[in-house]
Every structure is written in structure tokens, then in C-alpha cells.
Computed example of a mutant assay.
Amino acid sequence: MPDAYEFDLAVRYYETDAQGHVHHSNFLRYFELARVEMLKARGHEYADLEADGVLLVVSRATCRYHRPARYGDTLRVLIRTERARGARIDHVYELRRNDELIAEGATTIACVDRTGKICRLPAYLELPEAE
């Protein structure tokens, strides 16, 4: 899996709240979209993982909000894989509007089978250990 990926995301009207800001819950959706897009960039589809009985579930998620985002903004979504070994993937995220940091976060993803039992990541998702 590539250790970093980025793409642009246009904020949609329905993602905003009564104050005109992106609702806080949508930032976790943006993080999920980043994981899916990064997987696609590597030539894999999440549906193929599921068909093979491999499920990736969020076991931890954090988000720190710095600035509001609004309808019509284009956000640059950056995702970086910090660790992908065994049954665990750790990602970090940044959302930027131009050079302005809007939000940053992190997730830990666990690999499980259809019964919920922890299992090893497919080899193509693993990163080599840092030395």
C-alpha cells in the first residue's frame, strides 16, 4: 500500500450545519473516503477485500478541528500510513484549504474476518517495518 496519498474534495451543501460550517461528523467520513481512495490508487477495491472475507474496522479515531470549512470550499485531503503490519493499520490525516490546516486526525484499523476474529492483513496492505 502506498504510504501517502492525497486528493481534492469539494465540500457539498448537505455536509454543512445551520451555521454553514461542515458538520464535525463529516470529517470522519472524509477520513474513510481517504482510506478507500488510497486503496483504489493501489489497484484494489474494498469490495474485493470483503469478498475475500477480510473486513477492516475502525478501532480508534481522533480528529482535531482547527478552522471551519464551508460549502464550496475545496479541501486537500492527505492520508499517510504510519504502520501496516500484522492485523493493524495506523493512518494520519490532514485536511487543508490551500495552505490552511482545517483538521487533522488519526485512525487505527483492525483486520478481522466475518466472525469478528482478528486476522492478518493481506500482504499487499502491509508496509515494511521502519528501521
Rank of each mutant, 00 (worst) to 15 (best):
L101W: 04
P122W: 06
G116N: 04
Y46N: 08
D17E: 07
T115V: 11
L9V: 09
D113A: 07
H66S: 12
I118E: 12
F27S: 00
R114W: 01
C63D: 01
H44G: 06
D90K: 11
Y93W: 10
R85Q: 06
P68K: 09
L95H: 06
T74R: 15
V92F: 01
N98K: 15
D48K: 08
Y5T: 06
L127R: 07
R96C: 02
A47P: 00
A87T: 05
L56V: 05
R29C: 04
F27K: 03
A4Q: 15
E6G: 11
L39S: 08
A47Y: 03
L55F: 12
E131W: 13
A10E: 10
H23K: 03
T107I: 06
Y124F: 12
R67K: 14
A106N: 12
T62N: 04
L49E: 05
T108A: 12
R35S: 01
R80K: 10
E129K: 15
C63Q: 07
G43T: 00
Y71E: 00
V92I: 11
L9Y: 14
A18D: 06
Y30G: 10
R85K: 11
Y46P: 10
D3K: 15
R97E: 09
D52H: 11
L75W: 01
V54R: 01
A69L: 01
T62E: 12
R70Q: 13
L55E: 01
S59D: 11
D48M: 04
R114G: 04
D73F: 00
I118Q: 12
Y46D: 07
A10D: 14
A51E: 13
A34E: 00
E50D: 02
I89E: 02
L101K: 03
V57R: 03
P128S: 04
A4F: 15
T74Q: 12
N98D: 14
